[in-house]
Design a binder for these strands. Sequence first.
DNA 1: GCTTGACCTTACAGTGACTGGAAGCACTAA
DNA 2: TTAGTGCTTCCAGTCACTGTAAGGTCAAGC
Lengths: 139, 139
Amino acid sequence: MNISQAAEATGLTSKTIRFYEQQGVIPPAARAANGYRIYSEQQLDMLRFIKRSRDLGFSLDESRALFALSQDPTRTSASVKQKAEQQIQRIDQQIESLQQMRALLETAVSECRGDEQADCPILDQLNGMTDESVCGGKA
Amino acid sequence: MNISQAAEATGLTSKTIRFYEQQGVIPPAARAANGYRIYSEQQLDMLRFIKRSRDLGFSLDESRALFALSQDPTRTSASVKQKAEQQIQRIDQQIESLQQMRALLETAVSECRGDEQADCPILDQLNGMTDESVCGGKA
DNA sequence: GCTTGACCTTACAGTGACTGGAAGCACTAA
DNA sequence: TTAGTGCTTCCAGTCACTGTAAGGTCAAGC
């Protein structure tokens, strides 16, 4: 199985797989006589693990660490759970930050007529012309 | 007003202000005899505008474009509103993506005992050992 | 006058996780 | 033999900074 087949089988791209190898996320692939990388089912599983971990928002470093844990029979589920809970917290922070942005934008957008006139509450907000202590306050 | 005072006054860092100048986001600052950058109130307003725009999640390019719009008397509020609505859409996509991650993590975490045993549903999920078509399905 | 320390300048490298592109072999089909 | 595709390596670019190094400037204190 060469790199493009491995890419197909894992949902990654060939570029990304080479990048992971170069970054030490995965060990160097075996090579065929022609120098092409070859992948075993086991390595596909590793790549799929990394992809799923990335899809849950873990960094490459954490993904590597999680895979190491998954291969370590002496791990504890507590150690894994802790990482997952940290990740949930990070996600919650990101969501909260995005929701604050969204609320500010939404208020400004709702006040904007969106017509041919230059007058625009959205630009007013960016110019600091609204009361920022009260989100989107009209006062 | 020198660069660190401008940084203080805008909530940016000196580094970031220089970076914005180098990237063409803001025009080159005037210089004192000693070569130090000097900033006027007008330029502080521009920097504050950019910061608020960035804080709403607009890219530097969009922030620059929005500032140009805000300085253009022939603009229409419709053109601004469109950019803001696009930004809301992007934010919604990001939130949705994060909420999906969160839901998957939360399910796995809730099933994980988090004790000293190696057995771990979180790692099972990363290993593709759960039914992915039903998010977190226990079947 | 000299030193010290804070602040300014430029320029380049590093971050994270890729993505794109160039240049050059390898393989396959016509 | 040629064309086309796929593999290889290596380097540059993305985004928005941040860190670091080497050096010039300024104000205060001795």
